[in-house]
């Protein structure tokens, strides 16, 4: 757990729009350790998905570095080098209805990575690999020649997982992989992801807004607010001892199926003015306890630690 797989240093992703610059991701720094699951939570539009997509180079980062095994992913790269990164880093998408090409058979979808990286020498080998992958994600071999529209949401999401696994990645970015599925299927997909992690030693960046699901799958959790990371801590620590007022606010919003608790639950609102920033002072990301980082002012830092 101590080996860093991914280091993100001062990652910035700004989009220029006619109405000014949108700072979708603003100066983000964190590490992901080998074999862990890092959960990333935050409200809609806070830059979670953009972070994931910038890491995997779907967007060209405005500034900052993403080091994978010590090597920068961004910047000018030869095609060979890029293909290498593409094999090691994969992504699972949010919408199982939009993430599979409706004109291709399941076999062609799953084998796309094999085709691009020329991992299968013969047609037979390619088909065999597709069958293996289908079985890995709990689908039938006979499904290979069908089209995506014939499957349910959960089945499609598993096809998406099989496609990502085809190139034997080390690191998978799961961009809200379960938010489009109904609850019974969510557990199925999350458990499949957990099993695969154990089996293949995968590392996950799990982006979601369902806090209970994130707690279930993550080792550590990062909380994002307006393009910035405000708190990063081990999962249990974050739930038991939230420090940043925004994290407290998020946690206070989780409903429980318990009428007594629900009647007394007070939802806290987050108001950035509680930090009482002095003129010229900025918030910084500080380590208050080993492994527990909070975005805070100097005064708060003293109070926390």
């Amino acid at each position: 757990m101590t080996e860093k797989l991914l280091e993100i240093k001062h990652l910035k992703q700004h989009f220029v729009t006619p109405r000014g610059t949108v700072k979708a991701v603003d100066d983000l720094s964190f590490d992901i350790y080998k074999g862990e699951t890092l959960g990333l939570v935050g409200e809609s539009g806070c830059g979670k998905s953009t972070t994931g997509r910038s890491i995997i180079r779907l967007y060209e980062a405005t500034d900052g570095e993403v080091l994978f095994n010590g090597e920068n992913v961004h910047g000018r790269k030869s095609r060979k080098k890029l293909l290498e990164f593409n094999r090691k880093m994969q992504m699972i998408f949010q919408d199982p209805y939009a993430s599979l090409n409706p004109r291709m058979t399941v076999a062609d979808i799953i084998a796309e990575g094999l085709d691009i990286h020329k991992l299968a020498k013969t047609k037979k080998e390619r088909m065999q690999r597709v069958h293996e992958l289908l079985e890995t994600v709990g689908l039938n071999k006979e499904h290979a020649n069908r089209y995506p529209h014939e499957f349910s949401g959960g089945q499609r999401q598993r096809i998406g997982i099989a496609r990502a696994l085809a190139v034997d990645p080390e690191f998978i970015i799961a961009d809200e992989p379960i938010s489009a599925l109904d609850v019974s299927i969510q557990a199925q997909v999350v458990n499949l992801m957990k099993e695969l992690q154990k089996e293949k030693g995968l590392t996950y960046l799990f982006i979601a807004h369902d806090l209970s699901m994130v707690k279930y799958i993550s080792d550590r959790i990062g909380v994002m607010y307006f393009g910035k990371l405000v708190e990063l801590a081990p999962a249990d620590e974050l739930y038991e001892n939230p420090l940043h007022p925004y994290t407290k606010s998020l946690l206070s919003a989780i409903p429980l199926p318990d009428p007594d608790y629900e009647r007394n639950r007070v939802r806290q609102k987050y108001d950035p003015s509680v930090h009482q920033l002095k003129d010229g002072e900025t918030m910084e990301f500080r380590e208050v306890k080993p492994g527990h980082f909070v975005m805070c002012t100097e005064a708060e830092f003293k109070a926390f630690s």
């Binding site: 593409n86 994969q90 998408f93």
Partner: peptide, 8 residues
């Protein structure tokens, strides 16, 4: 996007 992340 998925195809792009695969290096297409």
């Amino acid at each position: 996007l998925a195809s792009q992340t695969l290096g297409a």
